[in-house]
Design a protein around this nucleic acid. Structure first.
Length: 359
DNA sequence: CTTCGGCTGACGG
DNA sequence: CTAACGCCGTCAGCCGAAG
């Protein structure tokens, strides 16, 4: 029996939450922004609502550019903690419908319904309609749903009819559905991979399907090549499974001005370290790796990391190691820094630590 | 040989 | 003025060193 997989995507999530909170925004173009510490319009668009998208505003776009396209829009600062809370409420609702559940981001989740609808896609559509009504009623948020025999197809289907859409792709329809789509519709094919495929004369999934696996691996790397070989055929065996805990915890910020003054940078780094530490404390494990991250004036990113012999969980370790990494970074690198960040990873249980330190 | 550590870059929300 | 521009997180690839 075919699997039945749903991908639920909350439409323009941040903007929809703001619209829900302030009815005055209804009917207006709304752009939720991440403003940097530089003041003015420095920063990027997090989420434009669909009205703003009509004007050409897109996620990730500089705010200054968005304002040229949509000067009349309402520009709001992102309230991420608030959105995270709303997201948790929505995810709890969704979980209740699923045989198995996988949250993939703040606004997206996969549900496997194979058992509960006994492999019947018509029933799955009914469930999807109920889910959409449910989150609209309980949380006041619109959503789009894709239904397919696997995560890949469900995800692409969800993007076909937004906002407030519902798209079903039955197993027997998968190949026809995919064939005429642009390869960039495949999740994992972004600007770079799309460019490489284009250079080889490939723009449609139909054309991608004609390429030998080995060739795709040569062009795009072993893993991506193999993935695309399967994806072009609608084949995806990835199970819908609950995600574990984060593997990295990090914070990054934009400096008020580009600099390479260690004192200025350390002030920010200490602040970031404290926020990272707060989140580490909520976790029962310690980290072994600390990474210092810098974006230079030319926007190029670099990082330096250090792995400790034993897991640690204290603030001082984060501060001291990141300072040490910053110092050596400044020695080895020229040019001013625009953004800095600190990240911890490589989580491990700390309990065995004492005996190992005895030596 | 495999695994780990360090780093970069692509990708997505 | 050679474009502008956040803040997350995941994964793969590559390289050299270590086991």
């Amino acid at each position: 029996m075919s699997r039945v997989v749903l991908l639920i995507d909350l439409d323009a999530f941040y903007a929809s939450v703001e619209e829900r909170e302030d009815p005055e925004l209804k009917g207006k173009a709304v752009v939720v922004c991440m403003f940097s510490a530089r003041g003015g319009d420095s920063g990027a668009v997090a989420t434009p609502n669909y009205r703003a998208r009509e004007a050409g505003v897109r996620s990730g776009m500089p705010i200054s550019r968005a304002k040229k396209l949509a000067p009349q829009a309402v520009y709001l600062p992102a309230r991420r903690d608030f959105y995270r809370n709303v997201s948790e409420n929505v995810m709890e609702i969704l979980r209740g419908y699923a045989d198995s559940f996988e949250q993939v981001s703040i606004d997206e989740a996969y549900l496997d319904l194979t058992r509960s609808v006994k492999g019947n896609f018509n029933k799955a559509v009914k469930v999807a309609e109920r889910i959409k009504k449910d989150i609209l009623k309980k949380e006041g948020l619109p959503s789009s749903i894709g239904i397919g025999p696997n995560k890949l197809v469900a995800k692409i289907a969800a993007g076909m009819d937004k906002p407030d859409g519902l798209t079903l792709v039955r197993p027997e329809e998968v190949q026809d559905f995919l064939d005429e789509l642009d390869v960039k519709k495949i999740p994992g094919v972004g600007a770079r991979s799309g460019e490489i495929l284009k250079e080889h004369g490939i723009s449609l999934i139909r054309e991608l399907r004609m390429v030998e696996r080995q060739l795709l691996e040569d062009w795009l790397g072993k893993a991506r090549g193999a993935f695309l070989y399967n994806a072009s055929r609608g084949v995806d065996d990835e199970p819908v499974t609950e995600r574990g805990e984060r593997e990295q915890i990090g914070r990054i910020t934009t400096l008020e001005e580009d600099t390479r003054d260690p004192n200025m940078i350390m002030m920010q780094l200490d602040r970031l370290a404290e926020e990272v530490h707060q989140r580490v404390v909520e976790r029962r494990q310690g980290f072994r790796t600390v990474t210092f991250y810098a974006v230079m004036s030319d926007m190029k990113a670099q990082s330096r990391s250090k792995t400790l012999p034993f897991p640690k969980k204290d603030l001082d370790t984060i501060k001291q190691v990141s300072e040490e990494l910053l110092k050596s970074f400044l020695c080895e690198t020229k040019g001013n820094i625009r953004r800095v960040g600190v990240r911890v990873s490589n989580f491990e249980e700390t309990h065995g630590q004492r005996t190992l330190l005895q030596f």
